[in-house]
Nucleic acid binder design. Structure first.
Lengths: 210, 210
DNA sequence: TAGATTGTTAATCGATTAACAATC
DNA sequence: TAGATTGTTAATCGATTAACAATC
């Protein structure tokens, strides 16, 4: 049922989910597709279309009920279950993420950190269990880790990713500039900062020199 | 000329640029569209099509010359000029980025860091000039800062973004989950970690329950 | 009810894929 | 030259936009 939602629509619905949570916290109870479109910077059409992909959406002639919509998205997207995650590579970026309160539990819970530097692991203070990199595969299996954040240097990225894959990881958020090779069963999202910088400056340059 | 390149193509070309730089460093001089497609995980068609958007691309019946292609992309996308950037919000994530060697200069140079916590600014050791948040607009103007990385708490994101915009910023990489309101002249790229987590787990969930 | 806003169908738009002639 | 690979045109595919009947 609901067959398949286009990828861009999934991404927009995730943003919508965040927006709805914010609205809910500010006490708003109902919201129209046009108001949501305004906030998201897309057309009201687009908002309604995206929401329609979710299937039955008990709504009316007076906008959406914020909480109902939040629940609907959470249900169809599986946001209600806590996801078990880990961080691989505990440099500046990795340890910054490891210590984010947001990932202590709730939607996403970081349960393990990995690094190839054993000294670092032994001296680092963290509420999260830390392991040497050679235990990645085994630990991912044992702790049933589903998602991983990859923040290692480029040179080791593919090898480390392979260990995660061998352990049965389901998805990887890749902070390295390396294009990770993974079977189609493993999803990879790239959030490389240099890459984002380049896209941004390319778009600006193309606009000026078109 | 070359009118407009589709956004997805621009993004792929930026990734391609990275791949080509890696190939070049490993000493490879020529590469075919099918080999590039293999690495990038897209069809050879797609690679050739994307490259063709760049306009004249002196190539042959024997693949692309790696260095020539790097130079062509850099030229058309404006990668040869150093971009002046800053980091706003010097928490764990912001200071991790501030200290990345990659942003000391070359393609992107972080020349300033901002935070509302004045104590932090005075005690933090950094090779980069640090300023209080209320000097954002003035400093962006004065230092001709083009791009900004936004790593402040959600609550202050829009206000801080507005100061950047007032200072004449051209692009923002937004690490917060907030949807930033900006005039169409200012480009915003969102790289929110929680959002990425959600997209990943939504796609996995939808695949299992479709 | 009447007004407003949705859900959905149809039409447009754009990007990707395929195929093939042009080129080295 | 012959083989290989590109650049580009045409065809397909999918997503977005528009419009409107259905609904509260």
């Amino acid at each position: 049922m609901a067959s398949s939602i286009p990828l861009p629509a999934v991404a927009r619905l995730c943003t919508l989910y965040q927006v709805l949570c914010d609205l809910n916290e500010s006490g708003q109870q109902r919201v129209s597709s046009s108001a949501l479109g305004e906030i998201l910077g897309v057309g009201a059409h687009n908002v309604r279309k995206d929401i329609s992909y979710l299937g039955e959406t008990a709504s009316a002639g007076g906008g959406y009920n914020v909480i109902n919509l939040i629940e609907l998205i959470a249900l169809r997207m599986g946001f209600n279950r806590e996801k078990v995650t880990c961080v691989v590579g505990l440099g500046h970026l990795g340890s910054a993420i490891l210590h984010h309160e947001r990932f202590r539990g709730g939607e996403f819970k970081i349960v393990a950190g990995f690094d190839s530097n054993i000294n670092l692991i032994e001296t680092m203070h963290s509420g999260v269990n830390l392991f040497p990199a050679y235990e990645i595969t085994e630990t991912v299996k044992k702790m049933h880790i589903e998602l991983a954040i990859l923040t290692v240097p480029s040179s080791g990225a593919q090898e480390v990713a392979q260990r995660l894959i061998d352990g049965g990881i389901e998805g990887i958020i890749n902070f390295t500039p390396v294009v990770i090779k993974a079977p189609s069963s493993v999803l990879v999202r790239n959030v490389d900062l240099t890459g984002e910088f380049r896209v941004l400056s390319a778009l600006l340059h193309l606009r000026e020199n078109n």
